[in-house]
Lab assay of single mutants.
Amino acid sequence: EPLWIRPDAPSRCTWQLGRPASESPHHHTAPAKSPKILPDILKKIGDTPMVRINKIGKKFGLKCELLAKCEFFNAGGSVKDRISLRMIEDAERDGTLKPGDTIIEPTSGNTGIGLALAAAVRGYRCIIVMPEKMSSEKVDVLRALGAEIVRTPTNARFDSPESHVGVAWRLKNEIPNSHILDQYRNASNPLAHYDTTADEILQQCDGKLDMLVASVGTGGTITGIARKLKEKCPGCRIIGVDPEGSILAEPEELNQTEQTTYEVEGIGYDFIPTVLDRTVVDKWFKSNDEEAFTFARMLIAQEGLLCGGSAGSTVAVAVKAAQELQEGQRCVVILPDSVRNYMTKFLSDRWMLQKGFLKEEDLTEKKPWWWHLRVQELGLSAPLTVLPTITCGHTIEILREKGFDQAPVVDEAGVILGMVTLGNMLSSLLAGKVQPSDQVGKVIYKQFKQIRLTDTLGRLSHILEMDHFALVVHEQIQYHSTGKSSQRQMVFGVVTAIDLLNFVAAQERDQK
Rank of each mutant, 00 (worst) to 15 (best):
P388A: 14
R488W: 15
L380D: 09
L453C: 13
M352Y: 04
S437C: 14
T421F: 01
I247Y: 08
R509N: 12
A505Y: 06
S246Q: 03
D411F: 08
F357D: 02
P243M: 13
V317I: 12
A318G: 15
Q329T: 08
T274L: 06
T261D: 06
G458S: 15
E377S: 13
M298T: 13
L353C: 14
T389R: 13
E377N: 04
A321S: 04
V315N: 07
A301I: 14
E401F: 13
Q511T: 15
V434K: 10
D349G: 06
R297D: 00
Q302R: 12
L380R: 15
T421W: 03
G379E: 10
L299K: 04
Y262M: 01
P383V: 07
E244C: 06
F448E: 07
E252C: 03
H462R: 10
L453K: 10
S461N: 13
F448T: 04
H462V: 15
D411L: 09
R278W: 05
G418I: 01
K359E: 13
T395G: 11
I477M: 14
L464F: 08
E377K: 13
T261S: 12
T344Y: 06
L353S: 11
T395W: 09
L387K: 12
A321P: 11
G414L: 09
G423K: 12
T482Y: 13
Q487Y: 11
G379A: 13
V472H: 06
H468W: 05
M466G: 13
K402S: 12
M352T: 08
V443S: 13
F492R: 15
D467H: 09
T274S: 09
Y262P: 05
A431P: 07
R452N: 15
T389A: 02
V434Q: 08
W371K: 11
F469T: 07
V241N: 00
W369E: 06
I451F: 15
V440K: 03
V415Q: 12
T274R: 11
Q511N: 12
P368T: 04
D499F: 02
G414K: 08
E377H: 06
K367E: 15
D289A: 00
E508S: 11
G418D: 06
L399G: 03
F295T: 10
W351Y: 05
R278K: 14
A505I: 08
S310L: 01
F271R: 00
H480T: 10
G441N: 15
N502S: 15
A470L: 15
M298E: 10
S246R: 01
R509L: 14
G418Q: 07
G240L: 01
T395M: 05
K402N: 15
I239W: 04
P383W: 06
G458R: 07
F492G: 15
R400W: 11
Y479F: 14
R400P: 11
E475D: 13
G403C: 15
E244V: 10
T385N: 12
V386G: 05
W284A: 00
P408R: 02
I396T: 13
S486W: 08
G308E: 00
V319H: 04
E465H: 06
T364M: 12
A497S: 13
E360N: 15
G379S: 10
G308L: 00
S486L: 14
T482K: 04
G312W: 03
Q354D: 10
G240A: 08
Q326L: 02
N255E: 06
E290Q: 14
W370Y: 06
P251F: 02
T257I: 10
S338Y: 02
P383A: 07
T260L: 02
D438H: 14
M466T: 12
E508H: 10
E475P: 10
T364C: 09
F357G: 01
D510M: 10
E401S: 10
H468V: 05
I444Q: 11
V443Q: 12
P273G: 06
V495A: 13
L387D: 10
V504R: 08
A506M: 10
W351D: 01
E290Y: 13
V415S: 12
M425I: 13
C331R: 02
R278A: 04
A292G: 09
N341C: 00
G414R: 14
S427C: 10
F448A: 01
T395F: 05
C331N: 02
T294G: 12
T456I: 07
A296P: 01
D337L: 03
L460K: 05
R330D: 08
V494S: 06
C331Q: 02
G240Y: 00
L430M: 08
S287F: 13
M298L: 15
M425H: 12
K366T: 13
G414P: 02
P368W: 08
M298A: 10
S481P: 04
A505K: 06
Q511K: 12
E258H: 14
E253G: 14
T279P: 15
D289S: 00
Q435E: 15
D499C: 08
G483F: 14
G403P: 08
I396R: 05
W370E: 05
E412I: 15
L373C: 08
E465W: 01
M352W: 01
S338T: 06
F357A: 00
P436T: 12
P408Q: 12
V386H: 06
G328N: 14
L299Q: 05
K366Y: 12
T496Y: 03
Q450M: 13
R459F: 14
P243D: 07
E327Q: 10
A249G: 08
L422W: 07
I267Q: 04
Q435A: 13
I396K: 04
T456F: 15
E377V: 11
I272H: 06
A505R: 02
F492M: 14
K449C: 12
P368L: 13
L399W: 07
E412K: 15
Q323P: 04
G304S: 03
E258M: 10
K446Y: 12
I477Q: 08
I463A: 03
I300K: 03
L457Q: 02
D455Y: 10
A431C: 02
P436A: 15
L373Y: 15
T395P: 10
L399I: 09
Q478D: 11
S437W: 09
D270E: 13
L399V: 09
Q489P: 12
V264I: 12
D362A: 12
Q256T: 07
W369V: 07
Y445T: 10
L460H: 05
G240R: 04
G393M: 14
E258P: 14
Q406L: 04
T391L: 08
F469Y: 14
F271G: 02
I334E: 00
A506I: 09
H372L: 14
D405V: 03
G414V: 12
N288Q: 15
E361D: 13
L430Q: 05
D270P: 06
E361I: 09
N288Y: 13
N502K: 15
G403L: 03
L429S: 11
K512P: 09
L353F: 12
F285V: 12
A311E: 03
R278V: 01
Q326F: 08
R330W: 01
S287N: 09
F469A: 15
S310K: 03
K484I: 14
Y445P: 08
L429N: 14
G458E: 08
F404M: 14
E365C: 14
D510N: 14
K446M: 12
T257P: 04
C392L: 14
G268W: 00
Q487D: 14
G441R: 11
E361C: 12
R452Y: 15
K442I: 14
E465G: 14
T385P: 10
N424C: 08
V420T: 13
V319N: 04
K484D: 02
D282N: 14
I247C: 05
A249M: 04
L276S: 04
D337H: 01
